[in-house]
Every structure is written in structure tokens, then in C-alpha cells.
Design a protein around this nucleic acid. Structure first.
Lengths: 187, 187
DNA sequence: TTGACAAGTGGAGCACACTCCGTTTATATT
DNA sequence: AATATAAACGGAGTGTGCTCCACTTGTCAA
């Protein structure tokens, strides 16, 4: 890859991050980003094939951070299994709430979910959730456990989460309790 | 409402349904629909504020049908609770698979999920799922049961469902078994 | 029947996502 | 340093969702 191309790729990310901080994600157009970065829209799209993929790229670091924190916690943790589950799930909710706009853009984008699903990072996220699910899930095969992790992620996607928080009026903690009760084998 | 307006509303639905049958939902533009129906785009949008809401309107009958069938089944059913749960869930999967494109358009649309969530029909769907969940869920409050129904719906949204079917290679029946195992209190 | 006017219409126009392709340029080769 | 060329650029252009508003028409009171 040419050096200038590499520089543009980075410029796009920092510019987009800055604009998304000023306005909402939805209020920033791809043209805005290209203009602010001082490049053409063609260049922008060659690097990130659509807005949602750009948001995915911007989220990568945050997701990675969440996963690393979770792994660190689990390596140190001495609490019982249910507490560990709740801790990691709580962190996940906090993470999702903080990055809501980016995540919504990824989840509602046209083709992007499959990119995310196929990414290394998604697999790591699933692995992390499997780790906290295993001790609270009774006897399950690895495939069944992975399925539960997938479903846990599906339940907490932005639309569903926003519905519970806003229309149903549940707090983050009530949601945490409800999800825990649902996922725990012995209720 | 004026008679001509009423006629247009119906014309839009029948025209859209016909076009969606010919091509895929994604391949039909709002302009296509307006032109085929012999009206202006303004008229189309006054009746259905966006494409997803039009898809929602087109889905209403199908959803209603599924709910009615489910209620009829439950009124007649003599099988055990788990069988009843599986039956209704299986019907739901079949329904979703058949109407995938419309449902995907609703779920991925910009503002539409909240319209759907607030609709009478969504509430009926939740009620139906609560009915089959109650006997297999141990002791739960009504609110907890409703939460589970919401989560069940969230798990089966088009993106999540497509991922399990296509990327993970699960069959409809495997999905049914996995979901059942997840939702049943005693696994 | 007619006149008034709310209700409804339709399509030009806008914004935005995204593509296409003629032009420019970084870099490897000599 | 000169040259060849693949890589990258950028912005005009396209299609689509959606809005706006000047115009038309069905309805109903007089």
C-alpha cells in the first residue's frame, strides 16, 4: 500500500471520529467526512465501502477494549459464577450504551452485520460471553453455548435495547437482572 | 376521508404487493410503486411515510393470520406444554421465513421498529408468546414473562436468524430445538 | 346548482449514499 | 534523473428515499 493511501485511511478515521463527536452519527454525511478530511468521496468509499463499515472500523478499538477488560477481569476474578456473569454483562451494557450511535449504525446498516459477524472480534466477543455463560448454564455442548452467546448478543442489539429502555422504561440494572434470570439455568 | 383517497390507499397496497411478488422488495423503488399505481410520489408518501412502513402495512395481514392461527391452535390443543411451545414457535419460524423480505425491511428501516413495537399487533404477538411461555417458564411475574417474549422476538429478528441459518448452517429445526432449550426453565 | 374550502394530489426538487472513470502520482526500475 | 505503470485520487454523475407546495377536486352548506 502506498504511503499516501495509508495516511488517508487514518485521516478518515480521525476526521470521522471528530465529526461524530460534534454532531450525531446520523447527522454527519459521507460527503461531510470527505470534505472535512480534504479528500474526494471516491477515496472515502474505496477505503470504507459504506457508512456502516466506517462505523464498524471506528468501533473496533472500543470493542477490543471491552473484550480485553473482560478477559482481564475474568483472569483475576474470585467471585462466584453468577457475579462474574453479571459483572461482564453489566460492562457490556455500559459499553453498548456509551457507543450506542456507532453500534446502531452498524446493526441497521445494509450489508454490514455479516461483516461484523465474520470478524475476528465478534468471535472473541462470543468467546468471552461463552466463558461467563458456561458456569451458569448447566451442561451444554460448545455449540449450544455458542448459540446462547449469539442470542445474548441478539437480545441486546440497539433496537431491542432501546425499546426496553425507552418504551418499557426499564433501567440498565433492571435489564441486567431480567437478562440474568433468563440466561441462568436455575431460576 | 375522501373516497378517492381511500381508493389510492388500497391501490398502493395491491400494487406494492404485486411488484414485491415480481421482484425482490429491495429491487422495487418507491417511485416504481407510485408509477405503477398511477399516482405521484407525494401521494404515496402521505399514505405511508416510508418504505418500511409500507412493508409493515403489507405485513399486517400476515401477522394477524399467524396470531389467529396460533390462538386457534392453543384453544384446541391437548398436547403437553413443551409441545405447544414448540408448535407455536415452529409456526412463527415458518411465518418469518416466508415473509423474510418484508420483515427485514421493517426491522432494518430507520424509524419503523418503534411503530411496530407500539402497534396493537405486536402486543397480540407478545400475548400469544406469553401464553406458550408461561407453562414452560417456571414461576415468573407477568412483566418477566413479557420480557421473555420480547427477547424471544429479538432473538429471531431477520439479521440474527439469517446469521444462524446461513453462516452457522443451522436448519430451521435445529434452531427450534436450540431456542426451546434456551427458553425452557428446566434444561 | 353553486360556491367555498378542506382534503388530497403530483411531481419538481433536495439530500444523501454510492459509483464510475479520466486524471494524477508514488514508487520501482533502469 | 528519466521513465513506466500500477495504485490511488477526486468529483461529476446516478439512483433513491423523501419533502414541499402550488394546484386540483370531492364534499357539503347555503
Amino acid at each position: 500500500m502506498r504511503k499516501d493511501a495509508q495516511a488517508n485511511r487514518e485521516k478518515i478515521l480521525t476526521t470521522a471520529a471528530a465529526l461524530f463527536r460534534e454532531k450525531s452519527v446520523a447527522a454527519v454525511s459521507m460527503k461531510d467526512i470527505a470534505t472535512a478530511a480534504g479528500i474526494g468521496t471516491g477515496t472515502l468509499y474505496r477505503n470504507y465501502p459504506n457508512k456502516s463499515e466506517l462505523c464498524l472500523a471506528l468501533s473496533m478499538d472500543f470493542i477490543q477494549q471491552f473484550i480485553t477488560d473482560g478477559q482481564t477481569y475474568l483472569a483475576m476474578a474470585t467471585a462466584d459464577a453468577e457475579t462474574q456473569f453479571k459483572h461482564v454483562l453489566g460492562q457490556y451494557l455500559t459499553f453498548r450504551e456509551r457507543r450506542m450511535q456507532l453500534l446502531a449504525s452498524i446493526e441497521n446498516g445494509p450489508t454490514v452485520m455479516s461483516t461484523y459477524y465474520r470478524s475476528e472480534l465478534y468471535q472473541q466477543l462470543v468467546q468471552l460471553l461463552m466463558q461467563v455463560l458456561r458456569p451458569v448454564s448447566g451442561d451444554l455442548t460448545a455449540a449450544e453455548l455458542e448459540f446462547r452467546a449469539d442470542m445474548l448478543i441478539a437480545m441486546l442489539k440497539s433496537n431491542s435495547y432501546a425499546y426496553q429502555r425507552q418504551q418499557k422504561g426499564l433501567s440498565r440494572d433492571q435489564l441486567l437482572i431480567n437478562i440474568t434470570k433468563l440466561m441462568l439455568a436455575t431460576n
